[in-house]
């Protein structure tokens, strides 16, 4: 595709533990087009955040990329030198953290932290303090916070969770960028605020014509916000489809299970959910990682890893027994 902006190819990320390597991200493929909103959906601990953090090489030291590439405008970020990478971090891609309270440094004011993001966004240009301040104020205003001057002078502990999440978004958007990665931006918040934040993010991204990667564990959230969904399970992308197609015709048993978990207004009570839990990543069994929980598993599922098969141009699935 010509307008492919960011693509992850066969990415494997392992964590070093005392019991051996935890093979958390197990060959993920993911593409984001220019101006596209992409969702990455899966339950907790399935490697969504690890995959996304690999893009900006923000992972903790114990995580290391075993293989794969991450191409941004055709260049492999994982092989890039430090200076080039810093350029991308400063101007092209930003990631909004899952925990706004942990993402802000407790001993500096919000303004100080946002100003540093602006200051280093263009190393050739010297920003004056007033320029940086007015950019910061604009960013804070854009996330629907009144009284930006007071907020910029505040320390993180003085603000509520919803406020901090907005500030994290403002920080990501203060410099014009091509890609915004939002890591479950509503998780730490109550549902009303969560909804506001999602809408805000959606509108801002549309307004600035950016690409968005939205990580979430809720298909319901993804449905409202994104154009295309990657369903992840235990470090594998198991199904990729346009949002509408996925809801109309889910193919992977895991996707079907997840869809079952979205509460429906038409009643039917609480769904049964998916039996079992994400398997251990240390010495995982060969074959499909979902096999042990899968209602349709057969002998081959336990022996071979299913590869991605295209059902049509926009819909592919990694399963031997899909409908």
């Amino acid at each position: 595709m010509t307008n492919e902006l960011l693509s992850i190819k066969d990415l494997e990320v392992w964590y070093k533990t005392y019991r051996g390597y935890a093979k958390v991200v197990n060959g993920v493929n993911l593409t984001v087009n220019k101006g596209e909103k992409v969702g990455v959906v899966g339950e907790s601990g399935c490697g969504k955040t690890t995959t996304m953090k690999s893009i900006l090489r923000m992972n903790v030291q114990s995580a290391y990329v075993n293989s794969g590439e991450i191409l941004y405008s055709g260049e492999n970020i994982l092989k890039m030198n430090e200076a080039k990478l810093q350029e991308i971090r400063r101007r092209d891609i930003a990631m909004i953290s899952q925990e706004p309270s942990a993402a802000l440094n407790p001993v500096f004011t919000i303004g100080e932290q946002i100003r540093d993001v602006i200051r280093y966004s263009d190393t050739k240009k010297k920003f004056t303090k007033e320029e940086m301040q007015s950019k910061a104020i604009d960013a804070i205003k854009s996330v629907m916070i009144s009284d930006p001057e007071r907020i910029l002078a505040s320390y993180p502990y003085q603000l509520s969770g919803g406020m901090k999440q907005r500030i994290c978004i403002a920080m990501g958007l203060v410099v014009p960028r091509n890609v915004l990665i939002a890591d479950e931006p509503g998780t730490a918040l109550d549902v009303t605020i969560q909804d506001q934040i999602h809408r805000l993010l959606h509108n801002l991204v549309e307004e600035k014509d950016m690409s968005l990667i939205m990580i979430t564990h809720s298909l319901g959230v993804a449905r409202e916000l994104v154009d295309r969904i990657h369903v992840m399970y235990a470090g594998d992308v198991v199904e990729v489809a346009k949002t509408d197609d996925l809801f109309k015709k889910p193919l992977h048993p895991y996707t079907i299970g997840l869809l079952d978990c979205v509460p429906k207004l038409s009643g039917g009570g609480i769904s049964e959910g998916i039996y079992g839990y994400v398997p251990s990543y240390i010495n995982p069994a060969p074959g499909c990682r979902f096999a042990s929980r899968c209602p349709k598993a057969t002998q081959i599922c336990r022996e071979q890893k299913p590869s991605m098969t295209s059902v049509d141009a926009e819909h592919s699935v990694a399963c031997f027994n899909y409908q």
């Binding site: 953090k53 900006l56 923000m58 992972n59 903790v60 990478l85 810093q86 350029e87 991308i88 971090r89 400063r90 930003a94 990631m95 953290s97 925990e99 942990a102 993402a103 802000l104 440094n105 407790p106 500096f108 540093d116 993001v117 280093y120 966004s121 920080m171």
Partner: peptide, 20 residues
Amino acid sequence: EYIAVARGYGIPNNKIMNKY
């Protein structure tokens, strides 16, 4: 997390060390 975030925004290493 806030150090990972600072790194993610491309704040120079020595700035992260000496300030953040």
